[in-house]
Design a binder for these strands. Structure first.
Length: 850
RNA sequence: GGGCGCGUAGCUCAGCGGAAGAGCAUUCGCCUUACAAGCGAAGGGUCGCAAGUUCGAACCUUGCCGCGCCCA
């Protein structure tokens, strides 16, 4: 399995490595969690993707973050569990299977319920299998032995148990209420399954009487009006309250009622009241004891009043308006009139508020507990700035409609008897048998089972070892868009079912993946990224690194193909650095030598700093910063400087150690390439994923070495700049004397490509650097005086500006008396340096003129 | 209408009280034997606008302008 140095290809080819590595991890059992272990637990349950979908780039982001957290904790010695699974996605999945049936010319009713559900299970196997394959391509280190599905036997037991408990506690009830109804899916929806958008409609004002004009965007619903309402304090209408008006077209007489809810400033201050087709009107109806007239069927087709009967709601609207216009009752019409309209989140059909008998969860006590758990700090939302969104949801939650008129899902465990009995049947209980008993036809909202996910997947309601070891889970990683869809519901159910113990300690929220211009990805816009496409072309590591590099807490994550190429390049950089190291005898054997050069002490010190920063950033869920820190340490410090310096002064054991540690640090984010390289470097046939996470060794922190190498870097950079300005080719060696850099002269010569002065050496230009370093170069006569003058003049301007600023501040009494001493001292130092620079530069300019 | 957030280099974003940063893009020069998926160097910003607090503001406060998102 281990590559020898000779076999390391000239460039990293992810395709050769990824599959082999993943199979090796699986075969070695590295992903498995042991509930009997003595180690401290760290657990994450995966936000279950819809079984009927496929993984998009947003999942790839979500999984990358979770995998990074899990892999680091595993290396830190925790007993880690990352539990995978999927949810059954009631409406979405049923829709997909119905579409497939339609292609065969069948409807679900042709198959009947039982056969239809069989077909859905077939589709589940097919679609779900594809998702598992995608997760493996991403490198997800999930415990496959614990994979769960919301419809599997154990989770179904959990659903029944929960339903029964809530039912018996009076937290589940059945009632006739206005609910969101999708006339296409033919099912109820919860509030959160409705998406609002500002759509163009019309605002029509209709005269109901001499005194009363109402404005409405839904003229057709006037057929179901049972009252007109005005504000009780509205002087214009006070005298009409208690009277009746004749409802046009129908001839019905309806009362005028006074209700606080009416906004007297909107329109005429009179509103029509249609209790069966509007949630606000329903409440007005309740308060005033008004009748409810349902005037549409479940497909939103008009069922009342002859001329309009049989018309769809959109046909009925113009028909009603035309009829009213003919009667001279239309006062005004405004088109387009933009207003908020609700749409089914699954099929985008305009939602119809509908009076209907449904099951509800009484959320008030559950939601308050869910809010309190965050308020009192038992659950932390990261980043904290998103907590207000959470509170605004849990503190204003409406009762949750949980019944769905679908066939795919957990059937409501309630049986109705011939005498009107209602019996809730728990798991292991026999439903009542005999003549006339019937089970409720509906199924439960998918989110009902998803809300149990953090504990149902661990075996609840049984008291399992998994539950004891891994609950509460350590962190939940998900997008902020799902904070109330799912997070709030898990909190409610978790706290309730687990005796007040929260489902997770931390909620780490990330944003949505967007394109490189910050635009939302959409099929119609053509900017959607398929993570598998990127994995094929750039590798899983590059894809993961690109996503993680953009993941600032709670913020959206822009990505682009170019950036993914950059990540691919980074992987290749690591590959080649390791290749170089192996070709030059780098090794981890024998540990670090006791005798260390300044350069060695510098890189080891930088390594300690990097470990400390990465640890801190990981703990704060700052994945973008983790990537940034490691990227710069790897590329700038290790590759650009340490490897280059080591060419002049090889130090194979230090180089081996630094790469070993670097690969460990990077492994959580880019697992494949780091494992391949680490195994090659350490001659291991195991894996870096079970190696120890690096720890800071304070004895290797060395400020003096860091300062020394920074000085060296400045000298080398200045000489390079001179060379570039003078048009000297990078490869061209130049004779020079170097003074004032003591122990580093050989290194400066190596990196700046300077030869020892030989016979007939004649310096034609001098580069001086603050701190007394002087490099005198023999450029073989021709020196570009203009370029050199320009360079020096620019440096002088920088120094002048510095002096001006520093003197202004240091001449300010307020600054001297109030600023901290160290700030003043630093500024004095800067001023002195700048003044010395000016002298040095002026000297050089003078010599240039002579 | 209510709430939250954001306006910093051409693009995407860090920085959030004491010298304006990164990646990509741009310009110039290089196949300097780990890497052209690379190396070296350079250019580029009145930190949305305006007041205020402070010795000192991209950073704190207020107002305005522009842009998102969530909830009604």
């Amino acid at each position: 399995m281990t590559d020898t140095p000779q076999q390391l290809a000239a460039a990293y080819q992810p395709g050769d490595v990824e599959h082999r590595r993943y199979e090796h991890w699986l075969a070695s059992g590295y992903f498995g969690a042991d509930a009997k272990s003595d180690r401290a637990a760290f657990s994450i349950v995966i936000p279950p993707p819809n079984v009927t979908g496929s993984l998009h780039v947003g999942h790839a982001l979500d999984h990358t973050i979770q995998d990074a957290l899990i892999r680091r904790k595993r290396m830190q010695g925790f007993e880690t569990l990352w539990l995978p699974g999927m949810d059954h996605a009631g409406i979405a999945t049923q829709n997909v299977v119905e579409r497939r049936l339609a292609a065969e010319g069948l409807s679900r009713h042709d198959l009947r319920r039982e056969k239809f559900v069989e077909r859905v299970w077939q589709w589940k196997a097919e679609s779900g299998g594809a998702i598992l394959g995608q997760m493996k391509r991403l490198g997800d280190s999930v415990d496959w032995s614990r994979e769960r599905f919301t419809m599997d036997e154990g989770l179904s037991r959990a659903v029944l148990t929960m339903f029964k408990r809530l039912f018996e506690d009076g937290l589940i009830y059945r009632a006739e209420r206005i609910i969101n109804w999708c006339p296409r899916c033919l099912t109820a929806l919860s509030d959160i399954e409705v998406e609002h958008s500002d759509d163009e409609g019309e605002l029509v004002s209709i005269r109901y009487s001499d005194d009363i004009v109402v404005a409405t965007t839904r003229a057709e619903t006037m057929l179901g009006d049972t009252a007109v309402a005005v504000h009780p304090d509205d002087e214009r209408y006070k005298h009409l309250v208690g009277t009746e008006v004749e409802l046009p077209l129908t001839g019905r007489r309806i009362p005028v009622v006074a209700d606080e809810h009416v906004d007297p400033a909107f329109g005429t201050g009179c509103v029509k009241v249609t209790p069966a087709h509007d949630p606000n009107d329903f409440e007005i109806g309740q308060r005033h004891g008004l009748p409810s007239i349902t005037m549409m069927d479940e497909r939103a087709v008009i069922t009342v009043h002859g001329p309009f009967q049989g018309l769809d709601r959109y046909e009925a609207r113009p028909a009603v308006v035309a009829a009213l216009r003919e009667m001279g009752l239309i006062v005004s019409e405004k088109r387009p009139y933009v207003h908020a309209v609700g749409h089914c989140s699954r099929c985008k059909t305009t939602v119809e508020p509908r009076l209907s008998l449904q099951w509800f969860v009484k959320t008030e006590p559950l939601a308050r507990a869910a809010g309190d758990a965050v308020r009192d700090g038992r659950v932390r939302i990261e980043p904290e700035s998103l907590a207000p969104r959470y509170f605004s949801w849990v503190d204003n939650m409406h009762d949750w409609c949980i019944s769905r008129q679908l066939w795919w899902g957990h059937r409501i465990p309630v049986w109705y008897g011939p005498g009107g009995e209602v019996v809730c049947v728990g798991p292991d209980e026999q439903p009542p048998s005999g003549e006339g008993w019937q089970q409720d036809e509906d199924v439960l909202d998918t989110w009902f089972s998803s809300a149990l996910w953090p504990f149902s997947t661990l075996g609840w309601p049984d008291e399992t070892e998994d539950l004891a070891k891994f609950y509460p889970t350590s962190v939940l990683v998900t997008g902020y868009d799902i904070l109330f869809f799912w997070v709030a519901r898990m909190m409610m159910f978790g706290l309730y079912a687990m005796e007040g113990r929260q489902p997770f300690d931390v909620v780490a929220l990330h944003g949505m993946v967007r394109d490189q211009y910050g635009k939302k990805m959409s099929k119609s816009f053509g900017n959607v990224v398929d993570p598998l496409d990127w994995i094929d072309r750039f590798g899983a590591d590059a894809t993961r690194f690109t996503l993680a590099k953009g993941a600032n807490p709670g913020a959206d994550v822009p990505v682009s193909e170019e950036w993914c190429q950059g990540s691919r390049n980074f992987c290749n950089k690591l590959w080649n650095a390791t290749r170089f190291a192996l070709m030059n005898g780098a090794t981890v054997e024998g540990g670090l030598p006791t005798e260390l050069s300044t350069v060695d002490r510098w890189i080891l010190s930088r390594l300690q700093q990097t470990i400390a920063e990465v640890d801190e950033q990981f703990e704060a869920y700052e994945f973008a910063k983790v990537c940034d820190t490691l990227f710069h340490f790897a590329w700038d410090d290790v590759c650009d400087w340490y490897v280059e310096l080591s060419k002049a002064a090889p130090s194979p054991r230090v180089l081996g150690h630094v790469l070993d540690q670097l690969l460990r640090l990077l492994h959580p984010v880019i697992p494949f390439v780091t494992d391949e390289l680490w195994c090659a470097l350490t001659r291991s046939d195991a894996s870096v994923m079970v190696a120890d996470w690096p720890a800071v060794d304070p004895s290797y922190v060395d400020d003096a070495a860091e300062a020394s190498i920074e000085r060296l870097q400045r000298v080398v950079t200045e000489v390079r700049r001179f060379r570039s300005d003078q048009g000297l080719k990078p490869g061209q060696r130049v004779a020079a004397t170097v003074s004032g850099i003591d122990e580093h002269e050989a290194l400066v010569r190596s990196l700046a490509r300077l030869d020892e002065p030989g016979e007939g050496f004649a310096a034609s230009a001098t580069v001086t650097i603050a701190g007394g370093v002087v490099v005198a170069l023999d450029t073989r006569g021709a020196i570009d005086v203009a370029a050199e003058r320009a360079r020096l003049t620019k440096d002088r301007a920088v120094a002048e500006k510095e002096i001006t600023q520093a003197r202004a501040k240091l001449g300010n009494e307020g600054f001297l008396s109030k600023a901290p001493a160290d700030v003043v001292a630093k500024l004095r130092g800067r001023l002195a340096t700048a003044e010395a620079d000016i002298a040095r530069i002026d000297d050089a300019l003078a010599r240039l003129s002579s």
